[in-house]
Amino acid sequence: MVGPGGIDALIQLLAKLPGLGPRSARRAALHLLKRRESLMEPLARALRDTADSVKTCSVCHNIDTVDPCSICTDPKRDRSQICVVEDIGDLWAMERVAGFRGLYHVLGGTLSALDGVGPEDLHVGGLVERARHPDVKEVVLATNATVDGQTTAHYIAERLAGTDVTVSGLAHGVPVGGELDYLDEGTITAALKARKPV
């Protein structure tokens, strides 16, 4: 028993968050209780509001307070490109760099024999439908550079074979600021394979 009923439940719930264990959850709970008005209550309100208002976009499977999401409805976005990502976290990563101004499609995972994830568990059908729209010229497959990620990318490329879109994938290689001595063998191997004339 860590504390009185309600606090104990709070600690147990906080401990389920990524990056937090029971000890750090206790610290977080204490921190919240000490700042009840300035932090705990606004946080509770924000959690409630988010839980009530956030929905999944019926077009790209991003999450937003509106459906379709603000990216899908943004008139400044390039509608000729769709970037396919595994998860919403990957979409946020792409948005952080602001290097892509097209639309997105969130798959909801990758094909995985181990976890029993098959094509029917991913949002591939919707992507193929979107790719058939005459405005769409390119689909960028931005799945992770893992065996599962690339297996999924090849599968999607096959499914898109019947459409008129260009299918491209992200390059694999040395990261910006990366020193060869500190890179793993796989990255160096992929970078060597994808070398280009300078």
């Binding site: 065996v147 690339q150 694999h172 063998e185 796989g186 191997t189």
Partner: peptide, 25 residues
């Protein structure tokens, strides 16, 4: 400790990658 990365070399070739994934599974 990695000795050799077969996967990294096959990532771009869907057919060979699927053969590797099948053999492992």
């Amino acid at each position: 400790e990695t000795v050799h990365c077969h996967g990294a070399i096959l990532l771009d070739d869907g057919d060979r990658l699927s053969a590797m994934a099948a053999a492992l599974a």
